[in-house]
Amino acid sequence: MNGGPPIPRVIARILIPPMLLYALYVQFHGEYGPGGGFQAGAIAASAIILYGLVFGVSHAQRAVPPAVVIAGMPLGVLIYAGVGIATLALGDNYLAYGALNPDNPPGGQHLGIMLVELGVLVTVFSTMLTIFYAFTEGED
């Protein structure tokens, strides 16, 4: 995949690292600014999809293998639901994050929100890429 016009390749090379960095910023700054797991997952998936479009889907699949994204889809939901199980086990309601840190409930809320947002990130990122891989299967 070294043919094709050079402009998209140069632009993609410049853009993809900041896109991934921006996704991380949106993820971990979600409690302070706009964004969260869903947005971060969509932006990170866009970066990988851009990579696949410009350099070939097989390159993208080498960076993020299909087996990983297929496993990631349920993993994110399990992380999210698992936080609920953890709060149940700690003797509070399902998804009542305060139980994660009984001495300081807002601290527990902080931790719980971070974990469930991580679950959302994993599922959204994986699902977007799974659909992209499924749609472009057999090409390249």
Binding site: G30, E31, Y32, G33, P34, G36, G84, L95, Y97, P105, P106, G107, Q109, H110, G112, I113, V116, E117
Partner: peptide
């Protein structure tokens, strides 16, 4: 209750978890 500055995040992830 939640201690995060972004109310949208608090609603999405906690109140409406």
């Amino acid at each position: 209750e939640i201690g995060v500055p972004n109310v949208i995040t608090a609603v999405l992830a906690s109140y409406r978890g």
